[in-house]
């Protein structure tokens, strides 16, 4: 599993995850900014993709498809044989930008690390065969910096990064299984612009997080 294909594959999953999570973390940061303290929070989430491991890998080996999948979120540069730099922008605007260093860690595993982003974080992606031929489990672990103040502010559950992680894994799954992430935000309705805005907020709530 150390061929080029594997690398690209994991790279794809990891990029999408790193970017998505980075975005969630950054957003929280915008709204309420807790002091940085020592200590990491750890969030683990997994999603099952109905494809064999090779196919999950294969999906991302297509550079064009990979670029399309992360388009609007990030650009990828190869640094050397085992590492990439991913520059992500906050698609919601605000000029936030962060860099993730992505490293191939071994067969079926990748790591990413964001150091100069809004919130330091590191994560790990692992691909495992699901039982009963049910495809592949993509398991992700995210660690981000936090501390007492976050706890005081009620962020103890690590809500946002967790939601971000779940969101992202759902997107990854959907992209691999059906080539798109479905969206109904601009479906027609009889709402006034004001009502539409309020409804978009509700949609956002119902879209954010989700299982996985």
């Amino acid at each position: 599993m150390t061929n080029n294909g594997t690398r690209w594959a994991l790279l794809g999953v990891t990029t999408v995850t790193a970017v998505g999570v980075g975005r969630a973390v950054a957003r929280r940061r915008h709204r309420r900014q807790p002091e940085r303290q020592d200590g990491w929070y750890v969030v683990r989430r997994g999603v099952t993709v109905d494809r064999p491991r090779d196919a999950v890998i294969g999906f991302w080996t297509d550079r064009e498809r990979l670029d399309r999948a992360v388009a609007g979120w990030a650009t990828l540069e190869q640094v050397d044989d085992r590492s990439w730099r991913c520059v992500a922008r906050d698609p919601a605007g605000g000029g936030t930008e962060w860099r993730a260093e992505i490293t191939v860690d071994g067969p079926g595993t990748l790591r990413w690390r964001v150091e100069d982003g809004p919130v330091p974080q590191e994560g790990r992606i692992e691909l495992v065969d699901a039982p009963q031929g049910r495809g592949t489990e993509i398991r992700a672990e995210l660690r981000y910096r936090s501390g007492p103040l976050r706890r005081v502010f009620g962020l103890v559950k690590g809500d946002d990064p967790d939601l971000g992680l779940r969101d992202t894994l759902r997107r990854v799954k959907s992209l691999i299984e059906c080539g798109q992430v479905i969206d109904t935000r601009r479906d027609p309705s009889g709402r006034s612009p004001g009502q539409e805005k309020a409804t978009d907020k509700v949609r956002e709530k119902l879209m954010t997080g989700g299982r996985a």
């Binding site: 109905d50 759902r170 799954k173 959907s174 299984e177 059906c178 992430v181 479905i182 969206d183 109904t184 949609r203 709530k205 119902l206 879209m207 954010t208 997080g209 989700g210 299982r211």
Partner: peptide, 10 residues
């Protein structure tokens, strides 16, 4: 279907 509800949280 796993992928056809973009608002699964509810």
């Amino acid at each position: 279907c796993d992928n056809s509800n973009p608002q699964p949280v509810f």
